[in-house]
Design a protein around this nucleic acid. Sequence first.
DNA 1: CCGAAAATCAATCAATCGATTGATACACGA
DNA 2: TCGTGTATCAATCGATTGATTGATTTTCGG
Lengths: 210, 210
Amino acid sequence: MDPHPTRIALIQAAMQQFGRGGFEAASTRAIAAQAGTNISSIAYHFGGKDGLRIACADAVAERVAQVARPLPGLQDRPDPRHARLLLRRLVRRIVTFMIVTPGASDAVAFVLRELAEPDSPVLDRLYTTLVEPRHRALCALWSAATGEPAEAEEVKLAVFSLVGQAVYFRVAAPIVQRRMGWRHYARAEARAITRRMLTNLDRMIGGGDG
Amino acid sequence: MDPHPTRIALIQAAMQQFGRGGFEAASTRAIAAQAGTNISSIAYHFGGKDGLRIACADAVAERVAQVARPLPGLQDRPDPRHARLLLRRLVRRIVTFMIVTPGASDAVAFVLRELAEPDSPVLDRLYTTLVEPRHRALCALWSAATGEPAEAEEVKLAVFSLVGQAVYFRVAAPIVQRRMGWRHYARAEARAITRRMLTNLDRMIGGGDG
DNA sequence: CCGAAAATCAATCAATCGATTGATACACGA
DNA sequence: TCGTGTATCAATCGATTGATTGATTTTCGG
């Protein structure tokens, strides 16, 4: 079916192992073994380990671009109530994607590892294609919901605060689960996190029903 | 002066390099070189690379234990206004520590790397000595400020949301700085982040002056 | 000044790393 | 039945990894 099954298997395996212990910790042999192919396939398809890293970044960017569709009601200026509704829906989507979507955990872990690396060769790619446009869109919505200017420092930091919470629930999953007495992130746990984050969102925006 | 200068230099260098690219990415040779000593000093002082890892975790735990002193006004049940004041002070302290304190950046990066690692050998140590007691204290304060029971699921998640924001501003520093147009985290930037986080705290707690 | 313990050194070990090689299997048009 | 390009394979390369060794230097009580 797929035109490049080995290529995709390699990306998937690499994304998982890169996300686990970092880029350097993952060996090409282990990646190839998990993908069910030979080591030299990496060089053949991607030119090397670094090429595989870039391919992972592109795969994430493409996937997110598909999931995070053009937000309805962003082209025109939505009224505050509508903006708040869209923000709530987005928070639901983000948390669901990060917590419960199968395979997304690996992608999130991979991205976070790259973001934390001071001189990651794919950081630029991830920022321009993944971080900035989404952050801008969220700022626009936040602006519409609160009336503050979209590119104000306060708004940008507020949006970072919001997504930072979701990111933390993923990156610190072992700790959160242990403290909460959870054995994993499943539907019930995702619901609890979503509820808390929606509460935070409403209160941070203010003015509404809290 | 110091009874173990080489030991301390090794821990400091290791913490930095472990935090940069992860545990496996850091080579013992590079660590020893940065510490200005020989490779075999690692084996002599810590038994090996893993021992150095544990020593780093202990060093962080001890340092945080010193910085995060017993919170004043926690033994008795503070009234809501006092609790909110203590929470605000703690948020200031956390952000300052994470953003601006020299050397703390390495420690934070190291801890986060360990927390993200699924099967880190020092995760247990870090959790029991570092995460849990602080989280419990924050939950108690949150409870006193809001009236909710301290060990309620909602309270625990709220505290995680709060610290998650601060953690994110550190772990995603390259992204945040780029989006904000900042060249680094200095006093002015830390102040902006602190202000936003205090606003978030006030609104999340609710009931107060916002 | 001496001798033992503490600490550091250069040198080397087997193991593993990413990359490369030449051979091989397969599909497809001439 | 060729010839060609794609894709994977086992085998091997030099380099680097963490660990270890034995010698050397430093420290300090007697």
